[in-house]
């Protein structure tokens, strides 16, 4: 109980300090400028880690630690995601009951297109992630949707990521105020403190990349989605982007949102857009 109370006090006082710091400052009505945001975001990491090659940021924790990187490169000869990759490839090619396949739902038959997801759908007025598009494809063809946090979805996205390996992330923001709003909402979600620990995504992935949190080394926010989905020993299996977001929320003692909630879709849009130009490296493997 004592420790808890201390935490509560700690988080409260942090919130209070943050509030005291901001309230007097008048923040000008900011114009949403994704191009400038992406440039500032990339520069921040390039300057903070001048020895990391730009294209290496997409390798998460490995970009931050040489020893870990060496161990990983040895493991890549027999990567632990191989099983999921093979399963995904087979699932992708297997027709639905109606005879159609996933390829019928995607541009270029779904091959080599991972770098364009998520995209802003101007008809729906919302961000559509790859996971969402896959389930919509299933439902449109009379199949039940998959869980966003389980193996099937991870296998399918692993295969699609693999066919895009090395292609630069290429997220567009169409000329539509709702798309700019989605980007801005994703940005806000990324920087907003939540949970009893009073952490935002940025507390860990902007302020502390390379640092250890329990046994793990924190990945930098730049290119943080390029390697998804990932195999993690701690999960003893694959995890989707949805699963990772849920896990990160829980770590700060915030109740996670439902997978593919608008906030998650938007934060995926924001993080992917600011990684434009960096190569797709998924599927990834983590210790």
């Amino acid at each position: 109980m004592k420790a808890r109370t201390a935490l509560l006090l700690g988080s409260l006082s942090a919130a209070l300090v943050a509030f005291a710091l901001t309230s007097p400052r008048v923040i000008a009505a900011d114009k949403v400028d994704p191009v400038a945001d992406a440039k500032a975001f990339q520069n921040f990491f390039f300057q903070k880690f001048p020895n990391v090659k730009h294209e290496d940021f997409v390798n998460g924790p490995y970009s931050m630690n040489e020893d870990m990187k060496r161990q990983w490169q040895e493991k890549e000869e027999f990567p632990p995601y191989e099983f999921a990759l093979d399963a995904g490839k087979e699932m992708f090619a297997t027709p639905f009951k109606n005879g159609k396949t996933y390829a019928d739902c995607f541009p270029n038959g779904g091959i080599g297109i991972r770098q364009n997801y998520p995209y802003f759908d101007t008809k729906e007025g919302k961000v559509v992630t790859l996971e969402l598009a896959l389930n919509r494809c299933r439902e449109a063809n009379g199949e039940a949707p998959y869980s966003y946090v389980k193996d099937e979805m991870a296998s399918l996205t692993a295969y699609m990521a693999f066919t895009s390996r090395g292609k630069p992330m290429d997220i567009r923001i169409p000329d539509d105020p709702r798309a700019l709003q989605a980007f801005e909402n994703g940005k806000r979600y990324f920087y907003t403190r939540r949970g009893q620990m009073n952490f935002s995504c940025a507390s860990c992935h902007v302020q502390s990349p390379g640092e250890r949190i329990r046994a793990e080394i924190l990945a930098p926010a730049l290119g943080i989605l390029n390697a998804l989905p990932i195999y993690r020993s701690e999960w003893s299996g694959m995890g989707t982007t949805s699963r990772r977001f849920v896990t990160c929320n829980s770590q700060t003692r915030a109740v996670p949102l439902e997978p593919q909630a608008d906030e998650y879709r938007d934060v995926e849009y924001f993080l992917s857009y600011v990684a434009n130009g960096l190569p797709i490296s998924g599927p990834g493997a983590r210790p």
């Binding site: 943050a18 901001t22 923040i27 907003t192 935002s200």
Partner: peptide, 9 residues
């Protein structure tokens, strides 16, 4: 408070 405070980050 985070409605505005997020911008400091």
């Amino acid at each position: 408070s985070e409605k505005e405070a997020w911008k400091t980050m």
